[in-house]
Design a protein around this nucleic acid. Structure first.
Length: 119
DNA sequence: AGGATGACGGGAG
DNA sequence: ACTCCCGCCATCC
């Protein structure tokens, strides 16, 4: 198994994979993504990976704070961009927040974590 | 080495 | 619901 030092790209790849695994119309928290990537407690690492990300195909907009709020400062470029992208998927965004229901069992089955379904 | 920073999380008041 | 505070981790100064 690869070593878990910051120089090891594996953790980053797992984080990206976890984000790509979020189905359209659903969302997940930073901490959630971290756990699914096998990195419990590394929510801030997920944030860093997103900040550094250059992949235009990555569904970064589906990642929210644990309380359902968009992580960008209200009114900022990223804030508006994320709101727009989420609404484009039918997600109801009010005042920078997504109303989320209880976690839903993952459909794939090989992931014990659950995603959030917007309410 | 030590303190500040950030697309975070959670608890307390 | 909102603010404040502290824990957490990788980076940067």
């Amino acid at each position: 198994m690869a070593d878990l030092s910051p120089t090891d790209p594996a953790p980053v790849e797992r984080i990206l994979a976890a984000i790509r695994a979020i189905p359209p119309g659903q969302v997940a928290g930073y901490g959630h993504v971290a756990r699914r990537a096998g990195l419990p407690g590394r929510a801030r690492m997920v944030a860093r990976v997103l900040r550094e990300n250059s992949d235009a195909n990555l569904p970064w907009h589906r990642v929210l704070r644990s309380d359902g709020r968009i992580a960008f400062p209200p009114g900022s470029k990223g804030f508006r961009e994320q709101s727009q992208r989420l609404r484009a998927e039918g997600v109801d965004v009010r005042a920078g927040r997504v109303r989320i229901a209880e976690s839903v069992p993952d459909l794939d089955g090989d992931l014990d974590a659950a995603l959030w379904r917007p309410r």
